[in-house]
Nucleic acid binder design. Sequence first.
DNA 1: TCGTTTCCTGACCGTATGGTCAAGGTGAAG
DNA 2: CTTCACCTTGACCATACGGTCAGGAAACGA
Lengths: 215, 215
Amino acid sequence: MAPDARISRLKPGRRTDIRRENERVILDAAEKVFAEAGFGGATMQLIADMAGLPKANLHYYFATKEDLYRRVVSQIFEIWLDAAASFDNAPGPVEGIGAYVDAKMDISRRHPHGSKVWASEVMHGAPVIQDYLETTLRDWTNGRIAVIQRWIDEGQMAPVDPRHLLYLLWATTQHYADFGHQVQTLNGGKALSDRQWAEAKASVKQMVLRGIGAI
Amino acid sequence: MAPDARISRLKPGRRTDIRRENERVILDAAEKVFAEAGFGGATMQLIADMAGLPKANLHYYFATKEDLYRRVVSQIFEIWLDAAASFDNAPGPVEGIGAYVDAKMDISRRHPHGSKVWASEVMHGAPVIQDYLETTLRDWTNGRIAVIQRWIDEGQMAPVDPRHLLYLLWATTQHYADFGHQVQTLNGGKALSDRQWAEAKASVKQMVLRGIGAI
DNA sequence: TCGTTTCCTGACCGTATGGTCAAGGTGAAG
DNA sequence: CTTCACCTTGACCATACGGTCAGGAAACGA
């Protein structure tokens, strides 16, 4: 309201830190709760408890449950896109797809909650991120299909349907996050060790690269 | 109460039909609603509307929401196990895994709701079917691992880790159900045609069988 | 110190949900 | 027809949920 010629730039002071830190804490808690209980099963009270804040405080930073959920999903999509970059600038499928599998497996290990929220969102018909699917994801997919097709044309891999290859990659790498509980149960109830994660990566890469005739 | 020497066996009369039919209608509606909204997001009212029955009638057949959910999940597990039979009595991986992929892809197409409910259940930590995971699923998995290992020992396929092969199979085939909305969006918003389903099956089988060195 | 903005939170509210119940309807056996 | 077990359902209840709000505390700038 007060007219001021100078653009008042926010110096990173304590106030800013408070907001940023609280938003981070709430988003982390929300991601976990949404992943474990689903959107419908999650309650603001549960998220508040997980974040160690009063429920009313959540509504100070995020107007509604939907807003909070939207932010969580967007955050995941960003991570997803970052991994997608591993695909680019690779001379061939061995490097490109190999790096992509590595990146996606790392995400499954480091962000299992996020992966579950994403899966849940898509399974329920993508009510929140439908526009992302139709724009960003579609464009990214078409771009990658072109790259794969080029590799095929160059004789670097067998002529498989690029689309179904991408689905196989997405499905398999995300399985270790989304179905992590099942994987763990079948692993004697113990979470995969560093060694087992490395073996999983290697196995997936071997099967995929061999499956497309790249090795 | 009335003492009767003869065991009064229920002849399949109209009464029995009513119960069976209503339970079927309710279970079908519940499967759909649970798949679309998740357990927490599903409401008995929604299921009742979908089934075309008053809500109170649902509670006549199923005491609680949890009971209804439990029945839905069990039903899915049965279908899942039936498909697993495709694996057996195959002379080698081409026939065995080929048939298994076919069966699982068919399930993804015919029972997408069931697949989503199962996925959701596992993602949320399998609160209801944890015992199934630890008994039936674990036994089935170990049995199949033995079969795959035998094929490897016989030189019918490359020495891949059987466990990760199973995960790849589960993940990929179920992807077409669980992420069906995403697949459809990337297919121009149209559901896969008969032809496209056949192509998907063929692509998956080709990549997998080649990936394990069976073809 | 004072004024202003931002942050915090206990108490509260309207609504929707899972579940109950009592009263009535219905099919079929005797 | 009578009887009885089974089925049906509108009305109701306690609870839990998302969201609001007023009033106070804390963090700045001047």
